[in-house]
């Protein structure tokens, strides 16, 4: 039996798809049979990030409707042994697949793979509920921004209510220099609010954009710091104890961005008499 891990975030654009693609490939490279499932029906892009766009024939909606088998729909990655992808439909909407469809597909994939990585759409509507329905574990991705953290918090609340117990956090796109200057939330700032276990921190990396555009995964680029971080996270998922190099993210005491923000909001032009 494999593990089904859903990658979610609430807010869009924080790096769910990049995380899904890189973790899937890292797990496959470690010898685990892995499939990445795109559940962002109507706005699919996991196939693009993984460089499999031109090979999509069938998609998850076809499978849910019983028109084709899973084996027909999934795409085998040419370069990475043991890596597969199940694409989302680009033309249908998110209601084309139900929670029960997802549970069924999840169970079937679990029999055939060591890891099933589900890329969740942004938001907390039907697509989100589909994506978490079958999950054994959840990885919440956030960036160190107040809005992303707020949405992640909301999502964690929903997940707790849905009795999902294994929740882990990835903080993506951290800029150590900004944290040092007190201009960005530190890892500590984020984990203090979200209070779930931290799986890893991925530094901001411009090379990711290049990777995404070419459909070349960051983990294959030796110069990519983000790629390195994703590999580390994959090793942690596999149960290895990986100590991160001295946390770049250490908070500068008292100069955290939260305090600056507070002063900005409440300090400057507060006409309140209190």
């Amino acid at each position: 039996m494999g593990r089904i891990i859903t990658i979610t975030s609430g807010k869009g654009g924080v790096g769910k798809t990049t995380t899904s693609a890189n973790l899937s490939a890292s797990l496959a490279l470690a010898g685990k049979r892995t499939i990445a499932v795109d559940t962002d029906i109507g706005l699919r892009n996991l196939d693009v990030v993984m460089g499999l766009e031109n090979r999509v024939v069938y998609d998850i909606v076809n499978v849910a409707e019983g028109a084709v088998s899973l084996e027909q729909a999934w795409i085998k990655h040419k370069r990475v042994q043991g890596l597969y992808m199940l694409p989302a439909s680009q033309s249908r909407n998110k209601n084309a697949v139900s929670v029960n469809d997802m549970k069924r597909i999840g169970q079937e994939l679990k029999q055939k793979f060591d890891y099933v990585i589900i890329d969740c759409p942004a938001g907390i509507e039907q697509g989100f509920q589909n994506a978490i329905a079958a999950a054994d574990e959840i990885i919440v991705v956030t960036t160190p921004e107040v809005s992303a953290v707020r949405d992640a918090d909301r999502v964690i609340g929903l997940l707790e209510n849905a009795s999902k117990e294994k929740l882990q956090l990835i903080i993506n796109r951290l800029k150590p220099a900004m944290v040092k200057r007190g201009e960005m939330m530190s890892t500590g700032d984020v984990t203090e609010i979200l209070a779930i276990s931290l799986l890893g921190v991925v530094p901001d990396d411009e090379k990711i954009i290049v990777s995404t555009n070419c459909g070349e995964l960051a983990i294959f680029n030796p110069a990519s710091v983000a790629g390195k971080a994703f590999k580390t996270i994959a090793r942690r998922l596999l149960g290895e104890e990986v100590v991160a190099p001295r946390p770049v993210e250490a908070s500068v005491n008292g100069a955290g961005v939260m305090n600056k923000l507070k002063h900005f909001f409440f300090g400057a032009n507060d006409t309140h008499p209190a």
């Binding site: 008292g254 909001f265 309140h272």
Partner: peptide
């Protein structure tokens, strides 16, 4: 109704 008062923020650090 009020927003966070000012003196509070000094104490709220860390």
């Amino acid at each position: 109704i009020t927003r966070s008062p000012r003196e509070n923020l000094l104490a709220a650090e860390g």
